[in-house]
């Protein structure tokens, strides 16, 4: 046993202990989603379903078109993520590297949009979307979030840490700002871009209040609105609710797992970072 081994063992022990705390609610949700009603009611502390059943999952899909809801959420989240990446890269580059009048003020104005409780903006936002004829449409779900201050702020912070030398080399080669962004900043920022994508995608996927307000028809409902079906005033149907939660969380987890690998690859390719 070298000192290295001991440190590693401690590392793993800490990580594992933390992981159990973090995972417990998930384990419990997963286990509940396979439980029969009797089990949920009479064995509330049972760690395993005594008689595992798929009936909650079947019932989730039979009560509502969950497939369609998943598709809607996918379209909205992917569209929002793509647009936010474009708008954030462009403006973050300008804020981080260009000099122009009003830079700090405009940046702060952008930031200010996050500081107002979003709930109060919902009604005026709804009025705008309706006047643009985008009620109950994908555009109406996506466009209001095609740019957010969070992504811009995050990327600006990241861009500012990229060494000037890289950029200077490109300028000497005669590259314009768009090309510098495309060939220098974006490749160097893969970890940051992966991080933003995941956050935006997840945020959009989990958004509840905005779709609730602007979606009218069953065909346009997103997955979070679908989950709300199982929470009514008369109580919650835990088995089905948990099955729905599992179904709605799984896609983002898979996405994160993939992005997380991408993120490691991005670093080794650029060769500048450990």
């Amino acid at each position: 046993m070298t000192k290295r081994h001991v440190t590693l063992a401690i590392k793993y022990a800490v990580l594992a202990a933390g992981a159990i705390i973090m995972l417990f609610p998930f384990y419990w949700a997963l286990s509940t989603s396979f439980k029969e009603l009797r089990d949920i009611y009479f064995e509330p502390y049972g760690m395993f379903p005594t008689n595992p059943t798929f009936s909650n999952y079947i019932s989730v899909f039979s009560k509502a078109p969950f497939g369609r809801y998943l598709l809607n959420s996918l379209v909205v989240a992917a569209g929002t993520t793509f647009l936010q990446l474009v708008t954030a890269c462009l403006s973050a580059y300008a804020f981080a590297r260009m000099r122009f009048r009003g830079r700090e003020i405009i940046f702060f104005l952008f930031l200010a949009t996050m500081m107002i409780p979003q709930q109060i903006l919902m009604i005026p936002q709804y009025l705008v979307v309706m006047r643009l004829g985008m009620g109950d449409t994908y555009q109406g779900l996506i466009l209001p979030y095609a740019a957010t201050a969070v992504s811009i702020f995050f990327l600006r912070q990241f861009f500012r840490t990229i060494p000037k030398d890289f950029e200077d080399a490109a300028i000497i080669d005669g590259c314009g700002p768009l090309r510098i962004l495309r060939y220098v900043f974006i490749p160097l920022s893969k970890p940051a871009l992966a991080t933003i994508s995941i956050f935006v995608f997840m945020w959009s996927w989990n958004n509840y209040f905005w779709p609730l307000l602007i979606v009218d028809s069953t065909e346009m409902r997103t997955i979070q609105l679908g989950l709300a079906l199982f929470r009514t005033e008369g109580g919650i149907q835990w088995g089905e609710f948990m099955a729905g939660t599992v179904i709605s969380t799984l896609p983002i987890l898979i996405l994160y797992f993939i992005a997380q690998k991408q993120f490691v690859k991005g670093i080794t390719l650029t060769g500048m970072k450990g």
Binding site: V86, T87, A88, L90, S91, Y93, A94, F95, M98, R99, F100, R103, I106, L109, F110, T113, I116, L121, P124, Q125, V128, V129, L143, P144, Y145, A146, A147, A149, I152, P177
Partner: peptide, 20 residues
């Protein structure tokens, strides 16, 4: 620089500053 900011400014203008 202003062109770079424009897309974000448009979206924020319509869906954030106006409602604000």
């Amino acid at each position: 620089a202003y062109l770079f900011i424009l897309p974000a400014a448009l979206v924020l203008g319509i869906f954030m500053f106006y409602p604000l």
